[in-house]
Design a protein around this nucleic acid. Sequence first.
DNA 1: CCGTATCCTAGACGATACTG
DNA 2: CAGTATCGTCTAGGATACGG
Lengths: 128, 128
Amino acid sequence: MSLPRKKMTDNFPGCPVEAALGFLDGKWKGVILFHLMGGTRRFNEMRRLMPNVTPRMLTKQLRELEDSGLISRTVYPVVPPHVDYDLTELGKTLEPVVRALHSWGLDHVVCRDNRIETSVEPLEEHNF
Amino acid sequence: MSLPRKKMTDNFPGCPVEAALGFLDGKWKGVILFHLMGGTRRFNEMRRLMPNVTPRMLTKQLRELEDSGLISRTVYPVVPPHVDYDLTELGKTLEPVVRALHSWGLDHVVCRDNRIETSVEPLEEHNF
DNA sequence: CCGTATCCTAGACGATACTG
DNA sequence: CAGTATCGTCTAGGATACGG
């Protein structure tokens, strides 16, 4: 039986920090989680929040987060299609981590246009 | 505090979370920072702490962290060579982030022994 | 002790176009 | 609206060997 061929040498994290970062690996995962902390989001809503992410990459990162158990994908079989993305309970446990990252970024990095972005129009207020 | 940039050519992050993660990008940076939180470390000391990292990769990640302003490298011109790595003041500001990652890893991931599991929800396998 | 020097490959990431 | 399908580039990361 062929196991998914990836190098089996050190496939597994040797340290909790490495393990945790493994879940955030990927260019957009942290940002996706951050935006989902503001509540349910739909696909094109995310695209609007993250204008530089191509649909292909957004799909890929969302699927990986879903496979990791951090977010859920809910499909409503209607026309036009309606898909909701949410944090799972496990995903919500990452909030302190994402909050710490966000706080550090605010304190130590100047973002594009010198403008600080927060999640746009959150369904629930979250003050960081 | 000065405003560090990884590289001048880097795209500006569109979100503080993305910005912060940019500094931790790389397979071993988080773990390196974590170990340096325990105090000054020397090169081969780090190798012992991270047995799976090749010297090439360790050097590379250390240099990038240094370029980011998160760690300092102190060379003592003696024989045999003696080099100390430490967190800078900026690097120390990342401690809450690294601690959050570490804590999450401890709470939700079981490392070693060829298995990785979460304690919250059943997870499919991960390839790290 | 503390690294470099080469060489190599998988896959991450992006651009663009298309679809049920 | 919410994605796929292709194709292409680039580089992070590893294996191995050597050097001051």
